[in-house]
Simulated assay, not measured.
Amino acid sequence: MADYTQFLADEAASLAFAQKLASVLKPSLTVYLAGDLGAGKTTLTRGLLRAWGFAGTVKSPTYTIVESYELDGFKVEHFDLYRFQSPEEWLDAGLDELFDDNTIALIEWPQMAAGFVPAADVTVALSVQDAGRLCTIIPHTELAQKMLSPCL
């Protein structure tokens, strides 16, 4: 499965790319959002949610661990595991109960719950490059490859 990389010059480019990505992502997918602090993971999430019709505030779940969004016909669970001290916190918090076939899971810092967090269908890796961001999409499953191919 081939990776896809695109330079996103500014926030507007990130939001436009998120809209394109949102058009192909479907429920039952687990998406890892990789990147350092400030790489643009929440901006990308906000762009995805706007494209899916969510008009409210989109905030990073750094302190709440998860932000849930009920959308038209599916839900999005946006996790931020940065503050986890041990992987077992995933189970202790009951986060595995938030997954079903009607959910798109967006998970920041999945390595903090290694061994407990669901495997990724796709990873979106963001890194700061000059004034913009470098975005690499890495499909891990055939399902993800099929979904992403029209958009990439």
Results as ranks from 00 to 15, higher is better:
Val76Leu: 09
Ala55Lys: 14
Thr43Phe: 02
Gly132Val: 09
Leu71Cys: 04
Asp121Tyr: 09
Gly94Leu: 10
Ile107Leu: 04
Ile65Asp: 09
Ala39Cys: 08
Ser14Phe: 00
Phe84Thr: 02
Gly115Glu: 04
Asp101Asn: 14
Pro110Tyr: 06
Ser86Cys: 00
Val76Phe: 10
Lys20Gln: 15
Leu106Val: 06
Glu142Cys: 00
Glu108Phe: 11
Gly35Asn: 06
Leu81Glu: 05
Ser14Thr: 15
Leu37Lys: 12
Gly53Ala: 05
Phe84Tyr: 15
Gly94Tyr: 08
Thr42Pro: 11
Leu15Cys: 02
Glu142Ala: 15
Ser14Glu: 08
Phe84Asn: 01
Leu106Met: 09
Gly132Gln: 10
Asp121Ser: 07
Lys41Ser: 09
Ala125Pro: 00
Arg83Thr: 06
Tyr32Ser: 03
Ala113Lys: 04
Ala39Phe: 08
Ile104Ser: 07
Arg133Asp: 09
Asp72His: 08
Thr62Ile: 06
Val31Pro: 01
Leu48Pro: 02
Leu21Gly: 02
Phe17Thr: 03
Leu71Trp: 03
Pro150Trp: 11
His78Asn: 09
Leu21Ser: 04
Gly56Lys: 11
Tyr63Asp: 09
Gln6His: 06
Glu11Tyr: 03
Gly56His: 11
Ala119Asn: 13
Ala51Thr: 06
Phe7Asn: 03
Ala9Trp: 01
Ala119His: 10
Phe74Arg: 07
Gln145Ala: 15
Gln6Met: 08
Tyr32Trp: 14
Tyr69Arg: 02
Thr45Arg: 02
Asp36Trp: 04
Met112Ile: 00
Gly35Met: 11
Glu142Gln: 14
Phe54Cys: 01
Glu77Gln: 15
Met1Ile: 06
Phe84Leu: 12
Gly94Asp: 12
Gln6Pro: 00
Val66His: 10
Phe74Ala: 08
Lys20Tyr: 02
Ile107His: 05
Thr43Lys: 07
Thr45Ala: 13
Val76Gln: 06
Ile138His: 14
Cys151Pro: 00
Cys135Asp: 06
Leu25His: 07
Leu29His: 13
Lys59Asn: 13
Asp130Ala: 15
Ile138Pro: 00
Leu71Arg: 02
Phe7Val: 04
Leu8Pro: 03
Thr123Met: 12
Phe99Ile: 09
Asp101Phe: 01
Val128Ser: 11
Leu21Gln: 05
Tyr82Ala: 06
His78Cys: 04
Glu97Phe: 00
Pro87Glu: 11
Gly115Ala: 09
Leu48Phe: 10
Asp36Arg: 09
His78Asp: 07
Arg133Ser: 11
Pro150Lys: 13
Val31Thr: 10
Val58Phe: 12
Ser68Trp: 00
